[in-house]
Amino acid sequence: MECAQVAELTAAYALAALPEGERREVEAHVAACPECRARLAQEQALVAVLPLAVEQRAPPARLKTRLLQAARADLATRERQPDTPAHARRRGGPRSFFATPLPYAAAAVLLLFAVGGLAAWGAQLRSLNRQADAELARLRSSTRILAAQGTEAAPGASGQVLQLGEQQRALLLVRGLPTLPPDKTYQVWLLKDGKPVGAGLFQVEAGREAAAVVTGDLSRYDLLAVTVEPAGGLPLPSGAIVLKAGL
């Protein structure tokens, strides 16, 4: 295949839209042609960011629960398999304690104690978890989560905006913003066509994540921004934007 022919196909290759035969031909060509390889690499990088163009949705909480349950069950099954020495599988893991040899009686007592205690504790936790899961599932089904990013003024900062159903408020979770002196505050703004409206104040404790209630109907704005302002906040922003989220 000539470069001109390959040039027609690399985009389709990057998009996985080529049939097997042409795919192999493109691979054979780019392996030997640095120029076509570079173009393909660029096209693949462009294709790789396409998931960012998708409207972001929060998966239901039960998905994570199910996945982790499956992984734990799988781990338990693997640990029961006798083909690998126990110490090799368990080294460094939280279960290494049980791999330590103990006199049988002591081990039995310990086990009984652990099982009894854990069972009661587990039942309590399960009931709490069920309530929390149900609540989370209810919230998540009506919640939109948007990512917030620190700007050049606070490159280490990030956060999430949780829009709670149809309510006239949202929750902003922030981490990586520095603690401010007492005469300053973080102020949240909602912007429409560049015009800001104050939407709440918050402080950050050293090394902690911060949460702020954002008041306003987010669907009516296109940007959420956070600035540093004098304590009490201002009617219009005066400081640099430290965090932003497109709405």
Binding site: A16, R23, E27, L40, A41, Q44, A45, L46, A48, V49, L50, L52, A53, L146, A147, Q149, T151, D222, L223, K244, A245, G246
Partner: peptide
């Protein structure tokens, strides 16, 4: 296909992902 993610796409990803306006790509 192994070749599909062999190439490094991280640089462009982080630029777009970290771009101030997330609606950029859309």
């Amino acid at each position: 296909s192994a070749s599909e993610f062999r190439l490094n796409t991280d640089d462009l990803w982080s630029q777009v992902a970290n771009h101030l306006d997330h609606g950029l790509l859309r």
